[in-house]
Each structure stands twice: as C-alpha cells, then as structure tokens.
Amino acid sequence: MRIFLFFYFSVVSLHAQERFEVKGIGISIKVPQDWLEMKNSEILDNLNNYDFTEEQKINLLSSNNSANELVTYYKYNPSKFNGIIPTIKIRTRNTSSKSIAEFLKFIEASNNEVRKTLKNFEYQIKPEVITLSGKKVVSFSVKFVLIHNGKEKSIVSKSYYVLKNGYYISINFIEEFNKENNEVFFNELINTIQLD
C-alpha cells in the first residue's frame, strides 16, 4: 500500500517547545532554544497521531529516492542573515540495508558519490558504527567547500545515521568551519538524542 501526502512547511520561533519528538519512528532530541524551526507539519502529525504498521511507515518514509525533511533548525533567520547559517537537519531516506554492517558500506558508497560533487570533500572522522542512545548508528564528520556569493566557504557537517526497516533517519549538524564553532553546543544536543 502506497501512501502519498502533500507536505507543507512552517517557520516558527522556538520558545516553549523543549523536545522534538517523532513517536512513529522513535526519535527525540532537545530543541535548540531560540533557533528557528522549519518542520514538515503534515508528515509529523501523521507519524505522531496514527498507528501505522511497519509496512505503512516504510511506504510513507521511503516513497521516493529523495530525502524527506522532518525538521530543520536555523540559528539565524535565513531571510535576514547573509552567510552560512549553523543548521541542524533531521530527515529520512530509503535504504535496502538490512544490517548495521551493510548500512555502513552503503553510507561509505554514498559518501564516495557525494565526494565527486563537493569541492575539497574530506573526512574529519570516517564513517564508523557507534552506540547512540543504546542503539548502533553510523556516525561521521566531513569538511567541504561551497561557493557563497562568489567566495569559498569551508563547511563542516557532523552526521548520525539511524538504520530503520527500509529507511534511515539522518541527523546532521552543519556550520561554517572556524567561524562560530558551535561544536560544544552541538555535542550537548547530540547527548540528548533518544532512540527507540
């Protein structure tokens, strides 16, 4: 059974909300206070309010080859800030991987393809299996260059990929290299991740 939904996004300020949680796929994280949130309200409402079967969840979250954005947090308002904004992205994407070892190879192969399109792509930490919230996940950190307003900007991205059945959850922490250095703050948030 295929489930097709039209997604819409909303931008709101984070003052009252303390945790971002998607019960339907078993993930939660403390939200960064006073950051802006852009979330996929329709898909999140469906996952949090309905008891989908595993097959329905797979169809919902892997119905195409592109990533399904669940939520993005921006440190600054994108419409008012000129430059690379510290960002946290949580999304899902389909995979046929059945084990964490197979998933690690899948991520390595995917990153090798990404390497071909990003300038100066290099690992700071190569993909590895770690334990996060009691679950085996794939983690890695990369650095690469983007062109912004005609100038090269070095970007760092720290990622955690959580294998599920037919799809995976990616949690990415992104910022400009050696600009603000939000690493300590990002690590604090990473320690609040809970996985079911």
Score class of each variant (00 low, 15 high):
Glu37Cys: 09
Asp34Tyr: 00
Glu176Leu: 05
Ser13Pro: 01
Ser13Val: 15
Thr72Met: 09
Asn120Tyr: 05
Glu102Ser: 07
Tyr8Pro: 01
Gln194Lys: 15
Leu146Pro: 03
Ile29Arg: 09
Gly26Phe: 00
Ser139Tyr: 15
Asn112Thr: 14
Tyr160Asn: 10
Leu61Arg: 03
Ser41Glu: 13
Glu102Cys: 07
Lys151Ala: 08
Val114Met: 09
Thr192Arg: 12
Ser154Tyr: 08
Lys136Val: 08
Asp45Tyr: 04
Lys80His: 04
Ile125Cys: 11
Ser170Phe: 01
Arg93His: 02
Leu14Lys: 08
Lys143Trp: 00
Gly150Phe: 06
Tyr167Phe: 00
Asn191His: 10
Lys164Ile: 02
Asn48Val: 01
Leu44Lys: 05
Tyr73Ala: 02
Asp51Gln: 08
Ser110Val: 08
Ile155Gln: 07
Glu102Pro: 02
Leu163Ile: 14
Ser133His: 02
Glu42Pro: 12
Leu118Asn: 10
Arg2Lys: 12
Lys126Gln: 13
Tyr73Gln: 07
Met38Arg: 15
Leu163Pro: 03
Lys179Thr: 09
Ile193Gly: 03
Tyr161Ala: 07
Phe140His: 09
Asp51Ile: 11
Val22Thr: 09
Arg91His: 06
Phe106Gly: 07
Val184Asn: 14
Ser159Arg: 12
Phe7Glu: 11
Ile43Glu: 03
Ser159Ile: 10
Ser110Pro: 05
Leu146Lys: 13
Val11Asp: 12
Tyr123Ser: 09
Ser141Asp: 08
Thr131Lys: 10
Glu108Arg: 10
Met38Phe: 04
His15Ile: 15
His148Glu: 13
Val162Tyr: 00
Phe52Met: 05
Val12Asp: 13
Ile193Lys: 06
Lys179Asp: 14
Lys158Glu: 10
Phe121Ala: 11
Gly26Trp: 00
Asn82Met: 00
Glu69Trp: 02
Val145Ser: 04
Gln56Asn: 08
Ile85Glu: 01
Tyr160Val: 11
Tyr50Glu: 08
Gly83Glu: 03
Thr53His: 05
Gly26His: 02
Lys143Ser: 15
Asp51Gly: 13
Phe106Tyr: 14
Ile174Ala: 01
Thr92Tyr: 01
Glu183Met: 10
Asn77Cys: 03
Tyr8Ile: 14
Lys23Cys: 06
Leu189Met: 13
Ile58Pro: 04
Phe52Leu: 11
Thr95His: 12
Ile174Arg: 08
Ile25Asp: 11
Thr92Val: 02
Ile58Asp: 06
Phe103Thr: 14
Glu18Trp: 05
Lys126Cys: 05
Gly26Ser: 04
Phe186Cys: 06
Ser62Trp: 02
Phe6Lys: 15
Leu104Phe: 03
Leu47Ile: 08
Ile25Ser: 05
Ile58Gly: 11
Val12Glu: 15
Leu189Lys: 12
Ile193Asn: 07
Lys153Ile: 12
Asn111Leu: 10
Lys143Met: 12
Arg115Ala: 08
Ser157Trp: 02
Gly150Asn: 14
Val11Ser: 15
Lys105Tyr: 12
Leu47Tyr: 04
Glu55Arg: 04
Lys158Val: 06
Phe177Asn: 13
Leu104Arg: 10
Tyr8Asp: 05
Glu69Ile: 09
Asn65Gly: 11
Thr131Ile: 15
Lys136Cys: 06
Ile90Met: 03
Met1His: 06
Val145Cys: 02
Asn181Glu: 11
Asn187Lys: 06
